[in-house]
Design a protein around this nucleic acid. Structure first.
Lengths: 369, 369
DNA sequence: AGGGCTGCCGTACACGTGTGCACTTTGGGG
DNA sequence: CCCCAAAGTGCACACGTGTACGGCAGCCCT
């Protein structure tokens, strides 16, 4: 039956079409299939399928022989064919803002770890914090028939309720920025974390404490600001609106914000930053002004990114167990994928890490009561 | 007509049924297929297939009607079924050491960007710099039938020659650590970069310059060390073996290495670090010793990670266009996937970025000629 | 001797999409 | 009036794997 493979040679006419459609043309060279192995082993292909799955339905020595042949031929089962028939691809989608963001990197790491342990592969997609793009990549992942999805720092939020019904794919959000009621999520205790940082500053004698946030409106910024205000209020310190300013979650925004704060007539002696990136910028702006950290101004961050311990001075910050959060999200997704109803909202504790960027408030000329 | 869509609305009751029947697996709830659309449009499924591909073979208004129905039904073509028949999954695999490494994160970003633009999805896998694990994940990606692969900082190297033949999948390596002849790769100009950094230090009057490397044996470390030695030699400075020490590519290893260097009788006045992470540790160790950067000791890094500009002092380093390198690797992979033979080895220029962690050598008591 | 059971294997589907080919219809030209 | 081309559509496959079911030995029991 040599004429059977005849159809494999006919690549050229099709190649023209493919090139017209700008589809890159791979060699139609077929990797060995289950049928090839079956032919070599003089059995039918279902027997091969069963043998490779260690099914008890096939004779032990036959199975061993088949496996031997398969190994010799370098056979690797096609996950795509299997996915088509089993309706499960053993694949999950992960949407992050951008992978080069250290926070996303850590979360991704935790997710990949758990997924890989269970034999799942992960599709990575960037949303660039753009809601439209986020929607698009989620759709594309759905076309890939992922078994589940994790979305970090989602800018879409409640939009997932209808989408979730439509896609019929379990989704877990990590630190979503517009939290809704009925979606599964794992979030850091923003309020408690920021409160702890602020209380720490207050405990060091600071009274004039600034807050540099993210772009307004996002959940984590809102909650951290609330924690900051709660600490102030509990210590009987009046909230000064001019001290709570907006950044952009990056050093650049913090430099601008901090510079303005320092130019004011009554500058803060401490600043509670939205995250470590913001703290990075704040510290640079402080030094650019000729002031010292923490002698003149104390600084706190949030996240405890890897570099925080290596700054000068090492940064006091609120640790977010980012990698662990990724793991938790993935473990949760596995539960959902296996049909178990798991906890809808998981809140992870934040931990204040005191290093050397915070110190007692400088003795001031008591301008303020 | 209206009763037709009745079955789709019943989302929750079906979930209940599923639970009642104790079907833990995925809802057998089938997403709409091409055949469902065909039935609704009163055409055959090939016609639907063609309509959705904008094939000229199908009548324009029929096509429009079909597309309308498909959109209404929330139809999303199954990439896995399509992949099975077309033999191309429009998917690439990316293997990195760990994603939370800033270098890998940047490269990943560049790759995702280009891939996504062309409608390709990327599988992410960590090798944890473990050769055995690297081999395993490559095999698993092959089972997923990826159209191509990118592997960063490969620890397997020449092993890819047989693997490449066996898998029959185009592979591009980024900064592979055991470069072979016949594999495609994009690499940074390690030697030239390190030489530029060292020459910069020599130009500032330093004569006693240390080098803190990675764990020995890896290509990038070997080449950077060679660049360092080349610069010394050209300046007529004798290479001092006790000044070229091993780190581990992380702050931890650098702290240990730098501390020892400083304890020696004749400590260096400058140190050329394997990468920015190493520089981070070196700077910390220098300060722990009560010395100042750059007054007492100058420090250079390699990579120009995002935090380099925000350190105190801002780090002089060799910029590696990491993201661009990811893009180049991916563009190259696309060429290979479309059958074009592209350049085998691509070398990317490195750029010295002078900041404030390097300064003129301190006046010394001329112990050395 | 016949019936049933067990172990092992093959047959015949199914999954959802793409595509070569044959077929029908229409219109135009001879 | 017939033939042929062109346009549009359906039929029948194929892709590689999984699985329900039926069949065929061999054995035990009646």
């Amino acid at each position: 039956m040599a004429e059977k493979d005849g159809d494999r040679a006919a690549g050229t006419p099709r190649a023209g079409i493919r090139r017209a459609l700008r589809l890159p043309d791979r060699p139609p060279l077929r990797p060995p299939s289950i049928k090839d192995i079956a032919r070599l082993a003089h059995v039918s292909h279902p027997t091969v399928s069963r043998a490779l799955q260690n099914s008890p339905l096939v004779n032990a020595e036959t199975a061993a022989r088949i496996r031997k042949i398969a190994a010799d031929q370098g056979y690797r089962a096609s996950a795509v064919a299997r996915g088509l028939v089993t309706r499960r691809t053993r694949t999950v989608g992960l949407v992050v803002t951008t992978v080069n963001d250290p926070f996303a990197g850590e979360v991704t790491c935790g997710i990949e770890e758990i997924a890989s342990d269970r034999g799942y592969a992960v599709f990575l997609a960037n949303s660039h914090a753009d809601p439209a793009r986020e929607r698009r990549v989620v759709q594309e992942l759905a076309e890939r028939r992922v078994d589940g999805m994790v979305v970090t720092s989602s800018r879409v939020g409640t939009l997932y309720l209808p989408l979730l019904k439509e896609l019929d794919v379990p989704i877990v959000l990590v630190n979503d920025q517009y939290p809704g009621e009925f979606v599964h999520s794992v979030m850091i205790a923003n309020l408690e974390g920021a409160r702890a940082a602020t209380e720490h500053l207050i405990g060091l004698g600071h009274r004039r404490i600034a807050y540099i946030g993210d772009r307004g409106g996002y959940q984590s910024d809102t909650e951290r600001l609330a924690g900051y205000r709660e600490a102030l209020s509990q210590a009987g310190i009046r909230f000064a609106p001019e001290l709570a300013v907006e950044g952009n979650g990056l050093p650049s925004g913090a430099i601008e914000a901090m510079s303005k704060l320092l130019q004011s007539g009554d500058p803060p002696t401490a600043v509670c930053c939205y995250n470590d990136m913001t703290a990075l910028g704040a510290m640079q702006a402080i030094r650019a002004r000729g002031l010292r950290v923490p002698k003149d101004v104390s600084v706190t961050g949030f996240d405890d990114l890897f570099f925080a311990a290596y700054l000068t001075p090492p940064l006091t910050t609120v640790r977010q167990p980012m990698r662990r959060m990724g793991q938790i999200a993935m473990e949760n997704l596995f539960k959902l994928m296996s049909g178990e109803e798991s906890m809808a909202q998981i809140k992870v504790q934040a931990e204040l890490i005191v290093r050397e960027s915070t110190a007692r408030a400088p003795k001031r000329e008591g301008r303020h009561g």
